[in-house]
Design a protein around this nucleic acid. Sequence first.
DNA 1: TCTTATTTGTTCGTATGTATT
DNA 2: GAATACATACGAACAAATAAG
Lengths: 254, 254
Amino acid sequence: MSIERSPSEYRQVAAILRDRIRSGEYPRGAFLPKEDELAAQLKVSRSVVNDAIKVLRSDGLVHSQKGRGTRVHPIPVISRNAVVRQTKQVREGGDARGAFDGELRRLGLTSRVEVTVEETTATAGVAELLGVEEGAPVLARNRKMFANDTPVQLAISYIPWDIAEGSRLTEEDTGPGGTYSRLAELGHKPVKFSERTRERSPESSEAADLSMDISQRVFHITRIARNTDGRAVEVTESIMPAYQWEFYAEWDAE
Amino acid sequence: MSIERSPSEYRQVAAILRDRIRSGEYPRGAFLPKEDELAAQLKVSRSVVNDAIKVLRSDGLVHSQKGRGTRVHPIPVISRNAVVRQTKQVREGGDARGAFDGELRRLGLTSRVEVTVEETTATAGVAELLGVEEGAPVLARNRKMFANDTPVQLAISYIPWDIAEGSRLTEEDTGPGGTYSRLAELGHKPVKFSERTRERSPESSEAADLSMDISQRVFHITRIARNTDGRAVEVTESIMPAYQWEFYAEWDAE
DNA sequence: TCTTATTTGTTCGTATGTATT
DNA sequence: GAATACATACGAACAAATAAG
């Protein structure tokens, strides 16, 4: 357990703490000893412990709060199954609430979703994806998903206002079959999908909403749904802590 | 350009440098001013500049070397197209060299691949994925992919030795159609695929091979190819800098 | 509500180590 | 070997958030 040269001390301390978490010495949700104690125990300065904890934070292993302490992250990695989603989406709706719930239940976690809906105008980015003018009116469906009360995903869907106006899409509960069923009823059944996934630093608002650290990373998924005319009828941006998710896919040759 | 409170100084410095890179003031491949100069220029301590550069490094925007300096990362983000890969893989071979080359050519970059092949024994992890005993003999096909001489991906494929033995799979060049064509000829045509993608810190050896910083993140993709009997005939682990890649997929509602 | 103790976050200055030129 | 430039470590100080009273 002694600190040796070669890998820097703060990385060695990080490795020690990581082992203690993996071994269960610091269980899920438990507080770590405070930085001063760890520093004394491991005979390094507090700055080194602080740097080590930064590493664990960026791995999503722990979560620190000023004035409280550092505790082990309470939620295991969630698997997002690409193929199940693609088929279920059509059945259960664009917000994929069914898929999300299934993913969590498989891990013995409970899911909860907060929804807000508003009429707003398209920013340049959204306008380009939706193929409308910048500033054009759009419906924004905002969702925040929780696993056991820990936020694990943000999603905003944009729908052109001329499609959504007056329909149930403007209500919080879109009803059976979800967004995609309502779009189909409105004559805009989504039949073509594209999705881009990238990894980046969170905006500070995203970090706050997901109660994550700015030094951590998020997955940013942009999905576009198109009707038979090729018109974009819904654009969804999903933001999720990168340490919290993995992706899984299965397929057959040809 | 003055430093103000609220977001910490090192994040503000990071934002300033990020803007300079985006604006082209520091072009691709160019050196940044040295930390001392930046510190003087922005009226902060060198530690703050050093912390700021750590942030840019973890975003993959810059690359630092002791004794040399810090320069802007020379390669743009590469898009990995899931669907093209899935179809092309079968046509062009398991190492997807064709797909990789296409992805780079689209960006005006040149691709190069280094291949080494060896007979070795299965580690516990590989054994479980491949469905063989730990320590069983396997063929390891090791690949390192470059974009304009910058390493952008590592891949190791494992094939059970009883399948690969004596075949062209043990040579560096697997010939037309690649690995999957040879497996088909050997009576083990891959027909079922599964893939798991996660994001993590690099091992130090991976960081060295990809000339990236340990504070950066990698995508780790594990793909399993199975024959008609459901036997795993190839397992491929791909490691790539997370800042260097994005994923793209398109599909139709059946 | 206000106050105080606790705990982590950030910054500084300095010193030393290490890789490159 | 010398100079350069980034990497790491330390200790100290203060800021900011939280908790306890």
